[in-house]
Design a protein around this nucleic acid. Structure first.
Lengths: 130, 130
DNA sequence: CTTTACCTTCCCCTTGGGGGAAGGCTTACA
DNA sequence: TGTAAGCCTTCCCCCAAGGGGAAGGTAAAG
């Protein structure tokens, strides 16, 4: 099928699908007559796979790795689990970062009256030496 | 002072300080003899201000806005607080997103043995229709 | 005279595509 | 017959927020 239908079926944009072809992640055959990209069912499955993995915050490079494991019928599940745990770890770190950021900002916001007067503890904190 | 010392004092890299000058965020005078950027004390204060705001996850554009408020001695603190609350809101949304992502990934990871066998619930979930 | 340490501008690189131009193909409709 | 719509292609610039490094100018110090 042509790229438009493949994209529709995978729930991706044509741009994205073309991008995945360009970086060698999901490479369709080429129609010898038209020169158009020609997607098989298996390609659509891969596109869907990548689309989901991206939603799970896996980077394109990690998706490539997962796709390799997905295509290798003999790979140990250990490898996939390791990648997943690593990703969970990253998310944990980012969660902690954001939480402490939020705590600091919340502290600042609650100390500020937010009225019409020019005195603002938030700006004072940002400009103060610390 | 020259850009190197200004950067050091603000805790930023020279690249970053030069970038802020290029986008018109903190614009030093120019030394007429050498053509070098010439930073005053006030400029360093602004650089420190921006540096801190960036650490609080404010975008460069938001920093520009905060800097405008910082320089306006008559602005109401309301505006600063509104910007801060908006940022807290964004952080909250991102926290929720990451948390649900983590929950899903954790569920997948715990259902996977992670051994030498090829059967992997994680890959099954990524490739399954849903 | 040369090294070292500054500074300058300029250009390419990153992530993951989006937007749109310019051009080619086929099918449908007036 | 013309032409408009709807596909497809490649090509290039754009986003954030700078990082890396080249090429070149200048000043102080040995």
């Amino acid at each position: 099928m042509q790229i438009g239908e493949a994209a529709r079926r995978a729930g991706l944009t044509v741009k994205t699908v073309r991008y995945y072809a360009n970086i060698g992640m999901v490479t369709p055959r080429q129609n010898a007559v038209t020169g158009y990209r020609d997607y098989a069912e298996g390609d659509v499955a891969k596109l869907q796979f990548v689309g989901k993995a991206r939603k799970f915050d896996f980077s394109v490079e990690e998706c490539r790795e997962l796709l390799g494991l997905y295509e290798d019928r003999n790979r140990p599940s250990r490898e996939v689990k390791a990648l997943t745990l690593k990703k969970i770890d990253e998310i944990d770190r980012r969660l902690a970062e954001l939480q402490s950021l939020k705590d600091e900002l919340s502290g600042l916001a609650s100390s500020c009256d937010g009225d019409n007067r020019p005195d603002c503890p938030i700006l004072n904190a940002l400009s103060g030496g610390g």
